[in-house]
Amino acid sequence: MALKRALTDLDARYFLSEMGNRLRGRVLDKAHAVEMQIVANVLDTVRLVAGASLPDAQTFMRDYATTIGPLVYLPDGWDAKTRIDVGTHEFEHVNQFWRGEYGGVGGFSAGPSFAYLYLMDEEVRVRAEQRAMRAQWEVRRVVFGEELPHPSTFATILEGGYALSDKGLKLARDLAEIWTTEVHYGRIDTAAGETAIRVLTAAGLHG
């Protein structure tokens, strides 16, 4: 299955706006956000002082989308498909902030404690990122008809920029083994993935 027509910049703007309405988030321009410049400088300092596996300020501003609570910061210059793809990922983090992991049933809880645990506990960071990557791939598979890569890909992605130990990367790989199996067999399980598919269908791009 593939898209019904080519994506436009307007499609991406509509998509991100609708995702924001439905999942209670808002997309902002990262390049012009003073708070992101501050975060970039803090990361740079931590990276230089502690030698942590973190991106430098320029890479952070150009190549990384960032979500803080309900606010999604997207860099300039990304094409429509990338904004939809990465936007889906980031809106799963928005959902984690508001509802916790699995709506707070059997997973980490919502709100400031999620933000705190994401920063302080690598297991939570891995779980949150794997879930967000799953959301992306639910859309890629259903809407764009893409084949899932090997599960180890989703651990490799986290090797740089997330300050993970070998144990954290192993958990990433183990979780990816399960969710890629489920997505392969058509299971949509994330709020952002399900919402994104609905929005793209309502926009006449899928279905």
Binding site: Y102, G106, E123, H150, G168, E177, W179, H184, Y185, R187
Partner: peptide, 26 residues
């Protein structure tokens, strides 16, 4: 790695069931 049983998704719904399955890529 910390030896906690960690949920990997929501409980199964509809016709799906939780069972031993093979990852198609690995």
């Amino acid at each position: 790695p910390g030896q906690y049983w960690t949920p990997s998704s929501n409980p199964c719904e509809g016709p799906r069931m939780c069972c031993l399955s093979q990852n198609p890529s690995s």
